[in-house]
Nucleic acid binder design. Structure first.
Lengths: 310, 310
DNA sequence: TCAAATGATGAGATTTTCTCAGCATTCTGC
DNA sequence: GCAGAATGCTGAGAAAATCTCATCATTTGA
């Protein structure tokens, strides 16, 4: 069993010794000089030895204080370094990112090379996961969330709104029931993400085809797989226009109707509240936010006609 | 400016890790398991990383926790050692003693060789000083106080009562006014310690000579110097019978009247309250107390006739 | 020489820490 | 396989620590 002095007072002792002044230490520690004085006194009483000589106004270490400071400073250094290493090694270039698989494959992956060109020293360790992260229990540094931004106790930066457009394989356009107007969808399979069936309802209503009953519907567990299903010609999916821009550009996917549903949800970059950002995190954050901006400004292929849904 | 984690929680973290159990750590730290759990949680939240995996009932360090523990343990070790070195290095053989000069010269010095024979490893560093010691500001380990034991916040061990007898140089006995009865003192100079003039008044009253007015009186600042003045034949001093026994035995001082005044004051061994004793302090304390006992039992030269004063 | 700055101190306010009670889970002994 | 003991988590309130404030004494510098 250890016999340790009041540890918090050591912090004040060290600061006071470093400044040779209680007042200066108090300022650094964001407390009053009185608090420092009390703490030092407590420590001295515990030790039974005075650490500072107070003959003049300037406090000065006694011989015992000098000796003690050496050890205390060394110990606090070690704790500080270990803590920094464990938490915010602000110079670290390794960033643990957690994003939804769909965002990862359709947005982040294709742009990774651009990031690496700009920040060759930063290493992104990417984890694909859905659901919220418990930042106090996970070593994930940052995550990209999709939702309406009502998460608590989290640092959060808006990236951009998500607009959904229907996408499908070009083969469907040439099939027996070509998609000429929204109502034509009734002959097809609508692919939706589980628990987000309402998106199709909203889109159909926005497109003036709220009355139709589609031939079939297919529930898929994630946006990524929904898009994959669309690519395979299984039906029409609602996908984020930006996330599918590459497939559209290459002709692997087509947007049968340029009607965009504003989901009122958005992508957010999130991380633990108050967390000091490492250089790697700063780089990723800056790049991510500016890259998102670029996308917004870029003309979307097939000239968009933005219509706000409800 | 430092960025340190909550330091007190580190103590709990270390104990918990050492025991692999919050409950065991709680027992060691004399708190509830709940307190430990809260503190660990606070630390983990600060760090943003979980230090223990709690899948099973036994808590187990995570990889991060393991890494952190190494540093924390090391740092706490250093603080503990430095603190021990500064305070109660219980194995230390060096003892800082503070005693009144009179006690030092007439009692301690003559017996030092006996102490050193018994405890050859213990080194006494003796400081002669009068007045009270602020044990929280002085590196004095122990002191011998003279008084009535009404000191506050101090650990205190009664040594023995102080009996005052008149002492003077043998030359005075052979002078023009030999001391045959107490009233003869009126022809002599009475040496007293400043602020303790009443001692002579009390003694004279006790000796049935309260009515006399001495020829002269000499104020001296300390008991040691008063005895020295008596040795030099400057007059008659009141001195502790034990402290002057050597001079009396050698004939350099004589006790003209064997009337002992009980001062109702005593010598006490004192030290900082709750202070754990080092081996050196224990040795000195044991020796001092038993040596005082020996003195009490020893027949005092010139067969004493103890009379209680008021 | 006087105002400003520093430190000490005691009392009360504030914040942190701890305990308690209740709950869930996991061992242990039968 | 089950009941009870042991362990850990959590929230609310109690207890303790820490901090601030007000005041004073000293010292420093203009």
């Amino acid at each position: 069993m250890r016999r340790l002095p009041p540890l918090n007072s050591l912090r004040m002792f060290e600061a006071s010794a470093r400044h040779s002044s209680f007042a200066a230490a108090a300022e650094e520690l964001a407390v009053t000089a009185s608090a420092v004085s009390h703490q030092i006194k407590t420590l001295e009483e515990y030790l039974g030895i005075s650490l500072f000589s107070r003959n003049r106004r300037k406090v000065e270490l006694t011989a015992a204080g000098e000796q003690y400071l050496t050890a205390v400073k060394h110990a606090l250094d070690e704790i500080e370094v270990a803590t920094q290493r464990l938490t915010a090694n602000l110079d670290t270039n390794v960033v643990n990112i957690s994003v939804a698989p769909n965002f990862l494959i359709r947005w982040l992956m294709p742009r990774m090379s651009k990031f690496q060109e700009l920040y060759p020293d930063v290493e992104l360790q990417i984890n694909a996961s859905m659901g919220l992260i418990d930042f106090s229990r996970s070593n994930t540094d940052m995550a990209v969330y999709f939702g309406n931004g009502d998460w608590e106790d989290i640092e959060m930066h808006f990236l951009r709104n998500v607009m959904l457009v229907p996408v499908c394989s070009p083969f469907l356009m040439r099939g027996p029931h070509p998609l000429r107007e929204p109502a034509d969808l009734r002959h097809h399979t609508l692919i939706y993400v589980s628990k987000r069936k309402y998106e199709w309802d909203n889109w159909l209503e926005l497109a003036g085809a709220g009355f139709i009953t589609p031939k079939n519907s297919l529930a898929i567990s994630s946006g990524q797989l929904a898009t994959a299903a669309a690519l395979d010609g299984l039906g029409i999916a609602l996908a984020d226009s930006t996330l599918t821009s590459r497939e559209v550009a290459s002709g692997r996917l087509v947007v049968p109707f340029d009607i965009k549903l504003d989901t009122h949800k958005a992508f957010y970059l999130v991380y633990r509240k108050h967390r000091p950002l490492t250089v790697g995190m700063k780089a990723f954050k800056e790049w991510l936010m500016s890259e998102m901006q670029v996308q917004d400004d870029d003309p979307v292929p097939a000239e968009p006609e933005v219509i706000l849904g409800k």
